[in-house]
């Protein structure tokens, strides 16, 4: 589904991604962990196509297409979804209207007719249950005045509405209370299928108790320095990143 080879990217002169290799197959869930500032959000932004980041090397294949050649909106319409670490607010635009626009843009791209009001409402009701989001929240301006947790839940709700092939969740768990965490994780699990995949960025092992990953990677200083199964996450929880940092230093000497 997604094949990243030797991906390098920088912002202005600063090299941030220094050669990322990662392959994600349909049906898989990958978790990415790593210390603050290691480049996790940068990787997510580069994959989603944020223009401020310059790709200086490497390639990304997404479902047989050269991802880096596509515009951000086409990447989205091809099935890439990013749940933002910091979702933005758009005053005056109701969340419902926003999602409806997004859903119908995607349908247009796929050569489908736009959903009419009734169909859209039906789908919405169904997905609302999935993430237990409140109707009143959806009639408010997009993310405006939403609490941190509400914003995150709204990201997952949009994911459910858009049914992406590959969803990247950038620290969706941070800011969620314990109940919300479980609800969001359940939502993700409900959406999991043999045809889609998830890339979950997190700092906490706790999320991975709910969303059980097939692989865990550690991103450090712009590189994936360790990959393993869910046990790696447990080990990190226990020991912190120091032992990995030390090992990496040793290897590079």
């Amino acid at each position: 589904m997604l094949k990243i080879e030797n991906l390098q990217a920088r912002i202005e002169e600063k090299e941030i991604l220094k050669g990322i290799n990662l392959e994600i197959k349909p049906g898989e869930v990958h978790a990415i962990m790593g210390p603050n500032g290691s480049g996790k959000s940068t990787l997510a932004s580069v994959l989603a196509g944020r223009e401020a980041y310059e790709v200086t090397g490497g390639s990304v294949d997404f479902l047989g297409k050269d991802l880096l050649e596509l515009s951000p909106e086409d990447r989205a319409k091809e099935g890439l979804f990013l749940a933002f670490q910091y979702p933005v607010e758009i005053p005056g635009v109701s969340t419902t209207n926003f999602i409806k626009t997004a859903v119908n843009e995607k349908r247009k791209y796929q050569g489908l007719d736009p959903l009419d009001a009734a169909q859209f409402l039906r789908t919405m009701k169904e997905k609302m249950k999935l993430v237990q989001i409140d109707q009143s929240l959806l009639s408010r301006s997009l993310n405006e005045g939403f609490s941190g947790g509400e914003k995150k839940r709204n990201e997952i709700f949009q994911m459910a509405m858009l049914e992406p092939k590959l969803a990247i969740l950038d620290e969706t768990d941070s800011g969620l209370d314990i109940d919300a965490l479980r609800i969001v994780a359940n939502g993700v699990n409900e959406l999991r299928s043999a045809n889609n995949a998830f890339l979950v960025v997190t700092h906490y092992q706790r999320l991975l108790d709910y969303i059980v990953p097939d692989f865990v990677h550690v991103l450090y200083n712009g590189r994936i320095v360790r990959s393993g199964t869910k046990e790696l996450a447990l080990e990190l929880e226990e020991k912190g990143y120091d032992f990995i940092k030390a090992e990496v230093e040793k290897e590079t000497v």
Binding site: G49, A52, R75, F81, F84, I90, F98, A102, E105, Q158
Partner: peptide, 14 residues
């Protein structure tokens, strides 16, 4: 904001 535009782009909105 550029971030608002990018957020929309990421949802498939040009």
């Amino acid at each position: 904001g550029e971030d608002q535009i990018f957020y929309c782009n990421q949802r498939g909105i040009d």
